[in-house]
């Protein structure tokens, strides 16, 4: 578990990272609930998916750094498999994001927000967290510089949030946009949130999480191909 331990150490040693990782979920708890009935959950919970995407791209960027600095090459020469390197890093990222999820859910509960089904919301965030990490992993594999990757992904996040129905209800959009919205994982997150609020068929919730996990698997496969240089 050396790689896992050091991935955690590296992330937590960067003070801006620590600030960013703790302050934002806490701030999200205190965002108000919309007055006009949409978003359905308090704003901080509606936008938490966007935060998960931001956090995952920031965390996974240490793997680009490893590639830039030749650490991946060095590890390839060491008796450690690429699979080991990958899952230990992903585990470190997941641990940090799970803590954030616990903070926001328990914080919201304590603050008195109406979260409908906090346990199911936790499951939804956890599943989306895996999707977010996989997307970031795949995205980073396209770049050589972590700065470019991060900056362009910020724009992609805004677009995904916009077109996936996190910022606007999908129903408000033109028909074409409404149709293509399903291809964005963010659409399934907002569908999940809707299920949590209205809680209909449990099968729907499973289906939504299933789609998100499929996305996670797809991007994980793309992102896990070893790129040494």
């Amino acid at each position: 578990m050396t790689i896992f331990r050091f991935a955690l150490k590296r992330i937590l040693r960067d003070k801006t990272n620590v600030l960013f990782l703790t302050l934002f979920p806490i701030a999200a708890i205190f965002l108000p609930t919309a007055e006009d009935g949409w978003p359905l959950l308090p704003l901080g919970y509606q936008y938490f998916g966007i935060l998960l995407l931001f956090v995952s791209i920031r965390l996974t960027s240490i793997m680009i750094e490893d590639r830039q600095k030749g650490v991946v090459k060095r590890l390839a020469a060491a008796p450690v498999s690429h699979f080991n390197y990958l899952w230990q890093n992903l585990l470190a990222f997941s641990v940090i994001m799970i803590i954030q999820i616990i903070i926001i859910i328990s914080g919201g509960y304590a603050y008195g927000h109406e979260l409908y089904e906090p346990w199911n919301l936790t499951i939804l965030y956890l599943v989306f967290m895996f999707t977010a990490i996989s997307i970031s992993l795949a995205w980073n594999s396209l770049y050589r510089s972590k700065e470019s990757s991060f900056l362009i992904f910020m724009a992609v996040i805004v677009l995904m949030a916009l077109l996936g129905g996190i910022l606007f209800p999908v129903e408000m959009m033109p028909v074409v946009f409404e149709r293509i919205a399903v291809i964005f994982p963010t659409y399934w997150l907002s569908e999940g949130i809707e299920w949590i609020v209205f809680g209909e068929d449990r099968g729907d919730f499973l289906f939504i999480n299933g789609v998100l996990l499929l996305y996670a698997l797809f991007f994980l496969i793309i992102g896990s191909i070893r790129r040494i240089s």
Binding site: E147, L151, I152, A155, V158, L159, L162, F168, M173, P174
Partner: peptide, 23 residues
């Protein structure tokens, strides 16, 4: 080019999407 994408490409895309959505 990265700066160009961020300061010109991204706003064009966002403006286009917003403009279509808002009608």
């Amino acid at each position: 080019f990265i700066t160009m994408i961020l300061l010109l490409g991204v706003p064009i895309i966002l403006i286009t999407v917003f403009s279509i959505i808002l009608g």
